[in-house]
Amino acid sequence: MRSLVPILTVLAAMIAIWYAGAVYLNANWAYQQAERQDRVLTTSQLIAETWSQDRPRLPAPHQVATEIWETTVEKKITSKRSLIYHGWVTLSVTLAGFGFGATLGIALAIGIVYSRAMDMSVMPWVIASQTIPILAIAPMIIVVLNSVGMQGFIPKAIIATYLSFFPVTVGMVKGLRAPSGMQLDQMKTWNASGLQGFIQLRLPSSLPYLFTSLKIAVAASLVGTVIGELPTGAVAGLGARLLAGSYYGQTVQIWSALFGAAALAALLIVAVGLIERIVTKRMGFGR
């Protein structure tokens, strides 16, 4: 309860700045309209008009809120205009990409930790892969996969995988190397096999690192999905909503899709955090 006051204060300040920004950015248009109609705007009229334009440069918070309400609660979720429909399209690809990415990331990390050759040869490529702008490589992936007959779900999931495997690899490599020399020596004194050392020592030691990486990876997967939705012709998904909004100057729609994506990311991170808490508690990590 004590943290509620500062949180609400910051939130109120942000909304106030947003409203002020809407007045400032939309004032020009409001003045032009008034001039054409030979009206002179009072201050209160100006403010009212900047907060209620159809295609404002910056929509006011309540406009975005209304749009979100109308496209989630008031539309059927099967409708092409429902934000929940588009959100679900994005979410399903995000989860698939995240699943692939996490699996690939863990597999690469195990290879890198256990094979010196892989450590030397694969790790530089893993890092290099992330220096290529995703916006540049995403259309290439779509085009290449399209030419072999893959469309829609899979190409988008692969772009999401491309972004999400990296944090998992880096985190898992660090996690699997977390056991101290002493702990590894101890395993040796028990004449433990490599597999036993992996399952009993390295894997449990890596779990805290894994969950931290998974939180980053799930958010990265969502970003990858949204980017993957842009060049696919803006059919469905939050990325499609963003693109369609920018085609037609529908700023309110863009902002509501942005908030939809942010809410989805928050939801996913909270979900991973929840799984982390359950797993670490069951393992006895918690105090």
């Binding site: 101290s180 002493m182 702990q183 020596d185 101890q186 395993m187 004194t189 028990w190 004449n191 433990a192 036993q196 009993q200 020592l201 449990p204 393992m283 006895g284 990590f285």
Partner: peptide, 28 residues
Amino acid sequence: RAYGYVFQAAGLYPWRTIGGNIRLPLEI
């Protein structure tokens, strides 16, 4: 497995109970 080795630090696994830690070499 002719010897048991006790290191400078206890090195118990935090995710295992005391019983579980003692059971570890036995499981292995």
